[in-house]
Write a protein that binds this DNA or RNA. Structure first.
Lengths: 342, 342
DNA sequence: TAGCCCACCCAAAACGATTTGAGCCTGGAG
DNA sequence: CTCCAGGCTCAAATCGTTTTGGGTGGGCTA
């Protein structure tokens, strides 16, 4: 005889299992399982009895046991460089909101962008049996992180493709966003438009978009109008200083991210320049700080929330079996949000 | 005979289990388990053999099965109002860093501060079998959220106590932080110090700290110098306007949070007042935006990272069995960080 | 009355580990 | 030579579900 024949005395408050419910309802565990899952039809009266027993006993299904049997944890892992970075926090929230309704939870890992941590966490969440992984960490660290090709867990890469079947991707359309921003400046009549880029090899799509727009507008961009920063406010400050000491100053500056744009804004203020009359500034990302500065920063929105949300949908479509096939790529628009600096 | 007698052909890449390892090493699963856990000593030579088999087969233990048996998931849940809020993101990171080394991962839930979501997520993570819960959501929602007292999972409340055995708490010393800030202003010679408080019934400790310092400094604070905002920048703006239209203006303002302080700063700028010479401003929280505004905001740090980290330590001490006893409360200091506005 | 089909329900085998009582050797002591 | 202790190892039960292949009884048709 199995166990707990002493339903009489008060043992340590043992977890109430499906077997208890079955005993109470006078049916077999099988039947209880079936009324719970609805996978097989159960007579209405027994169904009632079972349901009653469940609520009387306060039964709660054990996810772990279920997981062991079904191999479904209903957990998605999300690997980001740093949850402390608002962009990734928002992305994570978008993901969580998207999959919550389907009963999925999210397991968050901050990798600090280090390959070894990426690998460690990747292994870890695999071992933990997550149903899918959203990989938003590392520019191209992907192939290093994953082992050989025997991958059976759906993976969604954010911000970067990854050549792997089963691996979907969602990426923001940096190029179009930048193009729109630059075109916007040109249309407004600015004639000497400069750009503060990111470090070499980074953010190339944003630069490409900028160049494309300039070409369409038939504006030549002299090399000295293309300077670089290191993504930081200070880097933007220095780059802007370089621009403003040029013999012919630019009358508009497109910055590859908001932090650098804020640095540029600092310079404008110091020089007593009026923004956007003397010089216009547009950033990229639409971080919180963009609305803190004065005037509020005109910028291009990096759709963090939507990226996370889309990643969630992609993962869900595979997990539900709704989609099975080659890796998809969805690209999301980066809309220009007009505020006070352009 | 159990299964997989066809180790010959290439089946779907079945998970390699402890049984495979055992077969390969010519021992029983028991022995493999023992070399893995070290709970019982095994002969050196067999140990070697087993270890070899493990690495040859690329065996990885199944956490789920282990969890089912041992009832330990090595996962901590953290319930926050919104992971998008940098304060909670940082707190979460502190927690994750603290427990990572011990092999614990973190499962994040954004409750939006709504009781029903709190309850839902609370149930959810309990059902998922997390080993502990860090509850950083809701000012006093606690007792509503948890069911009756039969709680066996360690809980750590952040920012609020909760009368429950097994329930630890970690709280920031708002009162001392506010006291220090106000005392700092008084020492600097400011003589008409005002305060922008939060809404009624909120942030009372910060108000108390302010009053205590004023008392020590023997400064009377007339009622019109104590105004209220709603935690937002706009609320701070309006409150500051009210203060500045007083017959005798304050020469220093302590704000119950940074956002309101930034709103106050806006007013000062509009009025052409020099900060901190004409009017000093101190905020509370030390959010990122505090270093964005000019001059940079002098404020009191709300130690988000440390709160999370401490919560992790508290949970760990119980999970490891190192501590078993009544609920503890650790209070963390909120240091004044001097910058440009005071 | 015999034969069938349905509608329901159950037994038992997984899932992949941990845990414990017991068995098998091998030496050394008596 | 017998016995016992100790060191290793194993079999079997357990954790709480899900999943199938069967049963069982009643109603309907011929």
């Amino acid at each position: 005889m199995p166990r707990s024949e002493s339903t009489t005395a008060s043992a340590p408050p043992a977890r109430v299992t499906i077997a208890h419910v079955a005993r109470r309802a006078g049916v077999s565990p099988t039947t209880v399982s079936h009324v719970l899952s609805g996978k097989r039809v159960v007579g209405e009266t027994t169904r009632r009895t079972v349901l009653d027993a469940i609520s009387e006993l306060g039964y709660r299904p054990n996810h772990v046991a279920r997981h062991l049997r079904t191999r479904q944890s209903h957990v998605l892992a999300v690997l980001v460089p740093d949850i402390t970075n608002p962009f990734y926090a928002v992305l994570t929230r978008g993901l969580a909101d998207a999959v919550d309704a389907a009963g999925y939870g999210t397991f968050v890992c901050s990798t600090d962008g280090q390959h070894d941590r990426e690998r460690k966490f990747f292994q870890d969440v695999m071992d933990r049996g997550v149903d899918g992984i959203v990989f938003a960490s590392g520019e191209l660290a992907s192939e290093i992180t994953f082992g050989p090709g025997d991958l059976t867990t759906p993976i969604v890469c954010v911000g970067d493709h990854l050549d792997h079947p089963l691996c979907d991707a969602v990426i923001p359309d940096d190029e179009a966003g930048s193009r729109d921003a630059a075109a916007f400046l040109a249309e407004r009549g600015y004639a000497r438009i400069a750009m503060i880029q990111g470090p070499p090899r980074y953010g190339t799509a944003r630069t490409a978009g900028f160049r494309a727009a300039m070409q369409v507008a038939r504006q030549r961009v002299p090399p000295e109008m293309m300077v670089r920063g290191d993504w930081t406010r200070k880097g933007g400050y220095q780059a802007m200083q370089a621009l403003m000491t040029l013999p012919t100053r630019p009358d508009a500056v497109f910055c590859a991210n908001d932090l650098m744009a804020i640095g540029a804004l600092d310079v404008a203020h110091e020089l007593g320049l009026s923004v956007p009359d003397d010089v216009a500034i547009i950033g990229f990302d639409d971080v919180d700080a963009a609305t803190i500065v004065t005037p509020q920063l005109t910028t291009v929105r990096n759709p963090a929330y939507d990226l996370g949300s889309a990643a969630g949908d992609l993962a869900l479509s595979r997990l539900s079996g709704r989609y099975r096939g080659a890796g998809r790529t969805v690209v999301l628009p980066c809309p220009l949000v007009e505020r006070g600096t352009a």
